[in-house]
Design a protein around this nucleic acid. Structure first.
Lengths: 145, 145
DNA sequence: TATTGTTATACTCTATAACTATA
DNA sequence: TATAGTTATAGAGTATAACAATA
């Protein structure tokens, strides 16, 4: 291993942590948290998802997600419904209030992406996105240990 | 904001979380943790650093770091010494045992980077590193709020 | 028997601030 | 007064396993 500043997991962690910390501080002023935003963003992409599905796409543990959704439900941001066809499962859907909060968070999210990619030309930004997707997929090889 | 799968903070978080989780599980079998590895990797780069310096490069909170270093000191991996010239400050240096543990962790760290970058040609990998450094630096702009 | 989600517990990390000892 | 580090406390998040209901 060479210098830390060329070690990819280190760079990935530093960049990700910095983005996440700053974003979290900012959305808290709007009455949300990073975790709440992750759930809302996942539901914006596809509303009415199952808990397990939501856990997978947000990278939030199921047991954490249960309590997070409890809180969001209490605040009227989402609503749980039994999944028709499988009574074990539950789907989570946004309410009008949830969508209003999402609408207020979206400009912040957009701004963060713009700032992070400031100075990147579109092709460069897309290469970065592709590289991160590929890196994620490469980790499948480690499942075996 | 477009699809989640093109949203950079999302991609960054997913890739980073996956790498970190898998790596942590693996080094635990060798008697370390991800946090311990971060400290050792930082000290490998430059041994005998101050606590504040260490906190900055590892992205670990100072108060967390104090207790982490407490534990590492108890295990004989590092040693605290007063900084000559400033009696308030403390430097943290590895012991022989700490360097032995580092040596055992290095191959794992190398393997993770190799797996993550599997299929990337060297120029591509370097572009990714440069992009992550640049992204990190771009976040300076958010300090103002 | 396996799966979905909830609950419970202990643990880790963070956030915040108070505290000490220096500078 | 400001800085370096420690300590204390409360709050998030994770890990694990036990559990209920259903498949």
């Amino acid at each position: 291993m060479g210098p830390l500043d060329s070690y990819l997991p280190y760079l990935l962690n530093r960049a990700g942590a910095r983005l996440a910390t700053a974003f979290d501080a900012e959305v808290r002023r709007l009455g949300a948290t990073l975790q709440i935003w992750r759930v809302l963003a996942a539901l914006r992409e596809h509303d009415g998802r199952r808990m397990g599905d939501l856990a997978a796409t947000t990278a939030i543990e199921v047991s954490t997600l249960t309590r997070l959704v409890d809180g969001m439900e209490k605040r009227g941001l989402v609503r749980r419904r039994p999944e028709p066809g499988d009574a074990r499962a539950v789907t989570v859907a946004t309410t009008a209030a949830g969508r209003r909060l999402t609408a207020r968070l979206l400009p912040v999210a957009d701004r963060y992406e713009r700032v992070a990619l400031d100075g990147f030309d579109p092709a460069e930004a897309d290469r970065l996105r592709a590289a991160l997707r590929r890196l994620y997929a490469n980790m499948d090889a480690l499942k075996a240990g």
